[in-house]
């Protein structure tokens, strides 16, 4: 067993950790979301490579085929992809709204803005700020 025998797992780990690092270290909200997406995609790869069987057929009943790849991980990942798309969409929607109401999507800047507001504005005056072009 050489290192290369498991190169799919190495690739998965590299992508996964890149995504996780981005989600934690980037201060730009958009880049954080890209990190999350990378992390999720890496998990999709991981599942798909579990399902692979050497010298096997696509899991569709055909004449003469005896070994099939495992179709279950593919099905699971279809679900996980839908979940991932929903998460990304919601995340992006939140980023748009944050940009509308704070005028920034940089985490460090947002932290200082949030503190400023606490003393200046009463809580119920925010509603009319929504209608920025």
């Amino acid at each position: 067993m050489s290192w290369l025998a498991h190169f799919n797992y190495w690739a998965v780990i590299v992508v996964m950790m890149t995504g996780l690092y981005m989600a934690i270290a980037q201060s730009d909200l958009m880049r954080k979301l890209i990190g999350i997406t990378l992390l999720q995609t890496a998990v999709f790869f991981l599942y798909i490579s579990f399902g692979f069987v050497r010298n096997a057929q696509v899991p569709i009943l055909t004449e003469g085929a005896e070994r099939y790849s495992n179709p279950l991980p593919h099905v699971l990942i279809l679900t996980a992809i839908v979940v991932g798309v929903a998460t990304t969409a919601l995340g992006l929607a939140l980023v748009v709204r944050i940009r509308e109401r704070y005028g920034s999507i940089d985490e460090a800047e947002l932290a200082s803005l949030a503190d400023e507001v606490e003393d200046l504005e009463p809580h119920h005056d925010f509603d009319d700020q929504d209608e920025h072009p």
């Binding site: 989600a23 992390l39 998460t87 944050i98 949030a114 507001v117 925010f126």
Partner: peptide, 26 residues
């Protein structure tokens, strides 16, 4: 939430929650 900080709170939870769910998935 009415306060605009609700948006930031939701976003932070989304990032952390997604990481949590992804770890569970792995």
């Amino acid at each position: 939430g009415r306060d605009r900080r609700a948006l930031l709170a939701a976003y932070r939870y989304l990032v952390l929650g997604s990481i949590g769910a992804t770890l569970y998935l792995i």
